[in-house]
């Protein structure tokens, strides 16, 4: 582990990635010497750690942190392929193990005109607003393209006290406090099971209500929730519920 002198950190002190707010322009974790995990590993606060231990830490944080939130991105919201649809379903299994969890989508990466609705939708151009509005202190990003996830994670660490988790389908994210890599649908399901196990060991009862949408509004009825769970979250524009005209580029609400 090393540090670069231009950031005025001591060379022999490894950089630890903690929840922020870290400051005006905190460095990217990668330029502080934090490397992405190898297969089978994850990162806990910047340190390479066995994946199971990372999953347990994710579970603990999501079960005990304030306003835990899932931020699903386009790769699990959009029906790119069959695997995306299955993964969307697996994300819901994770949500189903966390009492009081919110699901706030990041359906696309476009700057929002003419009005930002940060409570209901997170956007990589101003993700901190969503965190602030909803007082989110722990969150999981899943299905967000790596570049946009990294922008978002950096911005959240700079300006909020939120603990970030990145469940990544590729190589993981140094800028998240907790991350696992190569997350296909089976790994997402494994995470759901780890969360259930930890939840039970902590004596926390299973959720009795469906997840909230952003802004604390109830976005689905329990009946709809059951139906959505049966079908999976991922849907294409073509698969959007009929009779609801979508604005151009708008994500169908779940």
């Amino acid at each position: 582990m090393y540090l670069k002198k231009e950031h005025l950190y001591k060379r022999d002190e490894p950089y630890v990635l903690k929840p922020g707010p870290e400051g005006y322009v905190p460095p990217a974790a990668a330029s502080m010497g934090i490397e992405l995990p190898d297969p089978g590993e994850g990162l806990i606060y910047g340190r390479k750690t066995n994946e199971d231990a990372v999953m347990e830490e994710i579970a603990k944080q999501m079960l005990t942190g304030k306003n835990p939130t899932l931020f699903p991105g386009p790769l699990v919201l959009w029906n790119w392929n069959e695997h995306a649809r299955i993964k969307g379903h697996a994300v819901l299994e994770i949500a189903n193990e966390i009492p009081g969890v919110m699901i706030i989508p990041m359906p696309d990466y476009r700057p929002k005109y003419p009005k930002i609705e940060p409570e209901e939708e997170i956007n990589p151009n101003h993700p901190n607003l969503t965190i602030w509005h909803n007082k989110i202190e722990v969150c999981i990003f899943v299905g967000v393209h790596c570049h946009y996830a990294n922008l978002t994670l950096k911005m959240i660490r700079a300006g909020t006290n939120c603990l970030t988790v990145a469940v990544c389908a590729e190589q993981g994210h140094e800028d998240a406090m907790l991350t696992v890599r190569d997350s296909d649908d089976s790994k997402l399901r494994r995470l759901a099971q780890v969360i259930r196990k930890v939840r039970e060991s902590m004596g926390i009862p299973a959720p009795t209500r469906p997840p909230y949408g952003g802004g604390k509004r109830e976005i689905v009825t329990p009946g709809e929730w059951a139906q959505i769970r049966a079908k999976g979250l991922a849907m294409s524009m073509a698969g959007a519920p009929k009779g609801i005209p979508l604005r151009e580029g708008e994500m169908p609400r779940v």
Binding site: A28, A30, S31, K112, N125, P127, H147, M155
Partner: peptide
Amino acid sequence: FMSYNIHAVWQQEVWAA
């Protein structure tokens, strides 16, 4: 419509890559 940080983190991300 943009966070004040967006350009900064964008550049950081390029160099992180």
